[in-house]
């Protein structure tokens, strides 16, 4: 009850003084630590890590035309699905945006896993198709945008190792799974596409809904994946981050190989 008597300005001054004091202690103890901690200051207003927005409704007519042109043959005139392709109604804008913005849709070859290629539609057209499909039925997430400044990279690493590395590998380079299925490399993905994939579960990937991962956690994972796209490659050539297979070939072919050449050079040859 004491706090009732303290004015708002007083709380602010007290808080600010404590913040400066704590920071000063940190700086004096470990300049390196303090300087690297500093980029995440206490935000003025609580920023949300992920914000979902539907594309503007004015794009719906354009999206309808584009859908008729590029999608309808398989997904049907009302996106209700056919024997060739699934029903898209109620999946939301994020699903459609992921598939068309990564170039996976329209499909290159319906008999194999959709792969990343340069998108057939431009950004406005992608949003238009997403807006049109989202307008057909309610449900599904809107297009997420990630505020990387409000995320925690270390929590992202932990969640990535727990939920993503089992298929995409711990470095995010992707790999072949059973049969013809593969987990694609995460290196070309944009933050929005990563969040869309987590929330909508494209293809064989499981969907991580709000009951599994909070928006903050999705943002944390996105932050770590964007880090993996340009990781700290201390120590030299990264060898594609595929691990011991590449290292073994370098050790045997370049390491031992160059030593064999050197031995042949300085050693005797004729029998």
């Amino acid at each position: 009850m004491k706090f009732k008597h303290v004015s708002g300005a007083g709380v602010f001054v007290f808080g600010a003084t404590m913040l400066v004091a704590v920071t000063a202690v940190l700086v004096s103890r470990s300049p390196q630590l303090a300087s690297s901690v500093a980029p995440t200051p206490v935000p003025h207003s609580v920023k949300r890590a992920v914000v979902y927005t539907n594309p503007p409704a004015r794009l719906i007519p354009e999206g309808k035309a584009l859908f008729a042109e590029d999608c309808e043959t398989c997904h049907g005139p009302q996106a209700q699905g056919s024997s060739r392709a699934p029903n898209l109604q109620g999946l939301g804008a994020a699903t459609v945006d992921f598939w068309v913005s990564t170039g996976r849709m329209p499909l290159a070859d319906p008999t194999e896993q959709a792969f990343v290629k340069s998108p057939v539609l431009n950004r406005t057209q992608q949003l238009a198709v997403s807006a049109y499909v989202a307008s057909l039925a309610p449900g599904g997430p809107a297009i997420p945008s990630v505020n990387l400044g409000a995320t925690n990279i270390s929590r992202g690493e932990s969640l990535f190792a727990e939920d993503c590395a089992a298929c995409h590998t711990i470095t995010g380079v992707g790999d072949a799974l059973a049969n013809n299925v593969y987990a694609p490399s995460l290196y070309p993905a944009t933050p929005t596409q990563i969040a869309e994939a987590i929330r909508t579960g494209p293809g064989n990937m499981p969907r991580f809904g709000p009951g599994t991962l909070s928006n903050q956690e999705v943002g944390d994972i996105v932050r770590y994946v964007t880090y993996l796209q340009h990781p700290n490659d201390r120590g030299g050539l990264g060898l594609g981050h595929v691990g011991p297979v590449a290292e073994g070939f370098v050790a045997i072919l370049i390491g031992l190989g160059s030593l064999l050449v050197a031995g042949y050079w300085i050693g005797g040859r004729a029998g």
Binding site: A161, I170, T171, D175, R234, H241, V245, E247, A251, I254
Partner: peptide, 27 residues
């Protein structure tokens, strides 16, 4: 000095319930 080997910082600490795909041993 020139070629990275075993960048353990990218692998994270070992936690028994976490696993990475594509785990190979040294050659």
């Amino acid at each position: 000095g020139l070629v990275q080997i075993n960048p353990i910082w990218l692998y994270g600490p070992y936690v028994p319930y976490k696993v990475s795909y594509a785990v190979q041993p040294d050659w």
